[in-house]
Design a protein around this nucleic acid. Structure first.
Length: 211
DNA sequence: CATTAGATCGTCT
DNA sequence: GACGATCTAATGA
């Protein structure tokens, strides 16, 4: 099993859409803001390209206050707040200044079930604990203050990742969920998931704001 | 089962 | 001032 930084070094210069599927099946370890440890096997991710390349990416129009971490060194967490109430997390995968990341959309809790359940009261089934990007951060105890944190090894770090290669035939891909405009079209089929896994979130097209 | 309304606020235009 | 890389509950078929 390779750590995140080894994997990123091996794929140096590759596009986010090439790196994203390589993260599937890998195990993300997080010591949450409340101190409890949860390990999650990634089952669904989305790749986001760099500035001027990917109209669906936060980094498309260049660096801003919010997306600064995307333009920093790879192997860090890019955590952002959205819809007035939700937190989502990415792994920065491109070189410094490029602005690429992989959104962590869903996974299977493989350790720390009790902590994850406690953080996700209301989940009807364990497969729902981290089925969706905002649910995932909640199950793992990732908070806004974790933006920019380095993903190393747990312990001693609070965040870690171990890759676990998955056969290509078990991976499917398609348009990204909830992305408006051309970035959410078939032109960017950069959502990747493990075929048939119950923790993969349902696809939802972007919905324009109601009046 | 599918579709929709409402929640709620930081960020960028 | 408009709008989200979303989620839940409620309503309709």
């Amino acid at each position: 099993m390779a750590g995140l930084h080894e994997l990123l070094a091996e794929l140096d210069g590759a596009e986010a859409a090439t790196i994203a599927p390589r993260l599937l099946g890998g195990v993300l370890s997080v010591v949450g803001a409340d101190g409890a440890l949860v390990r999650l096997r990634l089952t669904e991710v989305e790749a986001y390209g760099g500035a001027g390349v990917d109209p669906g990416a936060h980094s498309f129009r260049g660096p801003t206050r919010r997306n600064a971490t995307m333009f920093g060194p790879p192997g860090r967490l890019y955590v952002y707040f959205t819809y007035g109430m939700h937190v989502c997390a990415n792994i920065v995968v491109g070189a410094e200044g490029v602005g690429t990341g992989v959104l962590l959309r869903a996974g299977e809790v493989v350790e720390g079930l009790e902590a994850a359940r406690a953080r996700r009261l209301g989940a009807r089934d364990d497969s729902e604990l981290a089925r969706g990007p905002a649910r995932l951060t909640r199950a793992l105890g990732i908070v806004l203050g974790d933006d920019g944190a380095r993903i190393g090894q747990v312990p001693p770090d609070r965040f870690g990742f171990e890759a676990a290669p998955v056969p290509p035939q078990r991976i499917a891909n398609g348009p990204r969920t909830g992305v408006s405009g051309p970035g959410g079209s078939d032109a960017f089929p950069w959502r990747f998931w493990l075929v048939g896994d119950p923790t993969v979130s349902p696809y939802r097209a972007h919905r324009p704001r109601a009046r």
